[in-house]
Design a protein around this nucleic acid. Structure first.
Lengths: 216, 216
DNA sequence: GTCTATACTCTGATAGAC
DNA sequence: GTCTATCAGAGTATAGAC
């Protein structure tokens, strides 16, 4: 209730006008859901508005009534994603028990890759292309968080509370191992066959791996 | 010198006619090199013939003098790549010392991701998109190799020569960890800054990780 | 708010001169 | 073998009726 809703000045300034009605919010959400499906599998250029419109059950011009263009839809998806992306890193508690904290971070990342595989692939697509649209985020937001986390991990190493490991590579390894099950799910499914989900057994394996690695 | 070069029957049969002259081979190679650069960063749809032509220093129609079309260039790149992709797996020796064999497989994969990062990203792009063009290869060639390797690893586990681990996840973990340094190089570079190469320290870390994991 | 029709740009591919 | 010119189709975006 901080901003007056009846104001006619919604277009002033450089910020995007906020959607107002309930139906607008709902349709934007439907479009974003469809766009996530399409962008995450085909990449930005590979995706077409036709595909997104069909997936959303709307007409192409109707999409462009809710968003300024293809780029706008994509940017909105990425923005939402990056918020979520930093969250697990922030949950690491410097006061907690080191191995428990790292293990829970790993589990949260694995769960994200299981519950939100499309978001993971959307992110992977961006990085593969050289991170043109999220370079700023990585350099300014992610990097700082990673540096802080690495410092914390190094302190734990120095205190002898976990085995000596390079903290950056430890973080990268968690990203690589957890995201792999989402990003390369197609390959895993083809190799393991129809009987398995890509993530089957992953948690047990990763727990085993990291408890072996981190035991002082 | 096994095939007569003067034959006029080069177009017979369903196989692609083999390029003959030295300059043809050379130009095809130049085009493939340029195409690898472009396809690996932008994906199949994101890449344009214009980009590839510029990168190769040739005109667009000249590209299409050497290849039948965009798909043809891409297919040729993938075919070459997949050959290389299976090689390290085949080098695993069932008669060798288990931990040495696995460690060397990991090192070979890491070296491939360092020496051929574009090939790794080309492959990653295909898998991210659901492996539409290499489904057959994965199902028919890669899967069999992986099953055989997993059997071998399981025997080593049963004999107590390596610690008990799920052999499929062990293989996946090596893929994930080694390819990550090529596929996510842009992210790693932005986080670690200009002073580091993405692969710096990776080998030491992975050796440490796998010797801890596999010690019986 | 939603649709049909359409404008305009980009891109893969071809024709044909040299 | 290589180039300029150009076509045909796909794809983003807009106009305007309803």
């Amino acid at each position: 209730m901080t901003a007056p809703r009846s104001s006619t000045a919604q277009k002033s300034g450089s910020a995007r006008p906020v959607p107002r009605s309930r139906i607008q919010k709902r349709n934007r959400q439907i479009i974003l859901e469809a766009a996530l499906e399409v962008f995450s599998t085909h990449g930005f250029r590979g995706a077409t508005l036709d595909q997104i419109a069909t997936e959303a059950g709307l007409s192409k011009p109707n999409l462009l009534y809710y968003f300024e263009g293809k780029e706008d839809i994509h940017r909105e998806l990425l923005t939402q994603l990056l918020d979520t992306w930093l969250a697990p890193l922030r949950l690491l508690d410097p006061e907690g028990e080191p191995r428990t904290e790292i293990m829970e971070y790993m589990r949260r990342k694995l769960q994200m890759s299981r519950d939100y595989p499309r978001e993971s692939r959307l992110f992977a697509n961006e990085i593969l292309q050289g991170a043109p649209r999220i370079e700023g985020f990585i350099r300014n937001d992610l990097r700082g968080q990673v540096d802080d986390t690495a410092d914390m991990l190094q302190r734990w190493v120095d205190q002898g509370r976990i085995a000596p490991v390079d903290p950056y590579h430890l973080i990268f390894s968690i990203w690589a191992l957890t995201q792999h099950y989402a990003d390369f799910a197609a390959q895993i499914a083809l190799i393991r066959g129809a009987g398995h989900e890509p993530h089957d057994g992953a948690e047990a394996f990763l727990e085993h791996l990291y408890s072996r690695l981190l035991a002082p």
